[in-house]
Design a protein around this nucleic acid. Structure first.
Lengths: 137, 137
DNA sequence: CTATTAATCTATCGGATTAGTAGATTTATG
DNA sequence: CATAAATCTACTAATCCGATAGATTAATAG
């Protein structure tokens, strides 16, 4: 299951992307409209800024704004930042690979094979959907 | 990511299913062969017993054995017991549905729609693979 | 130059979950 | 009765999650 951090992050980005004008959006505005704890949302937006999805402006007229085209931001890339691995096991993760301590032979592990299949099916959706796709309903 | 509990549970069941004879398998034997903490494995096997996948026999010659045909046990059903929801959000879970507190209108939520798609892709794999499929490599 | 606005930084915090451990008890076999 | 094996009860340490409080820095308007 996705953490609230991830869910809130995706909703906040969708909220920002939905605004056609490029003027900065207030944390408070997003928090209120999406029913997210304001302070919690602060840390999430900061993360998205530090990882290159958002930029911000301080002071009056400030806020957060996108620095990429929503069509270029895959949901897979967002989930990897917000949540971490998309795969069900570390040993089948493309971006967060880790060997299973208990597994002597990965190639012979039937669980490994299964989880690769699950991963590929999930990625097939998440790599081909973008933030732009979340902006209509 | 799946918890170790889930991973160990699936590996233990696979281990038991691989044995052609129906004689009970010792916890210790599974623990040693699959590199699982013995005490932790105890609780996992007990859970699988209480949920109708395994039966056990106490005392000498005892152990755990399957009470269903491995071909009849879908991996989805096992993961639901061991891990919980398969869906990425409670609001798209078939077996563990919960309304999102922050979401006023589920039908209008674009995240909701996306996660249904991910769920269906995952289930398509997990509902169609069985414990039997894990017994070859 | 000052007041205001808004993001940023630092520091906690309670509660839940995870992955285990310890030890006593019950049940079955020979 | 001795032994083997699952079962039950009860902890624990470490980590993470979601959230909060308060001080600080940066930008703008007047």
């Amino acid at each position: 299951m996705l953490s609230k951090k991830t869910k809130y992050g995706l909703k906040a980005l969708t909220y920002i992307a939905k605004k056609e004008d490029k003027s900065p959006v207030l944390i408070s505005e997003i928090a209120e409209n999406e029913n997210i704890s304001r302070k919690f949302l602060e840390t999430i937006l900061l993360l998205l800024k530090n990882t290159g999805f958002l930029a911000s402006k301080m002071g009056k007229g400030g806020g957060y704004y996108l620095i990429k085209d929503p069509k270029e931001i895959t949901l897979a890339s967002l989930i990897r930042i917000l949540e971490g691995p998309i795969a069900m096991l570390p040993c089948v993760s493309l971006n967060f690979y880790e060997k299973c301590a208990d597994c002597p032979d990965e190639a012979a592990c039937s669980l490994h094979k299964l989880m690769i299949e699950v991963r590929d099916n999930t990625l097939n959706v998440l790599e081909n959907k973008t933030l732009h796709d979340l902006t209509f309903d």
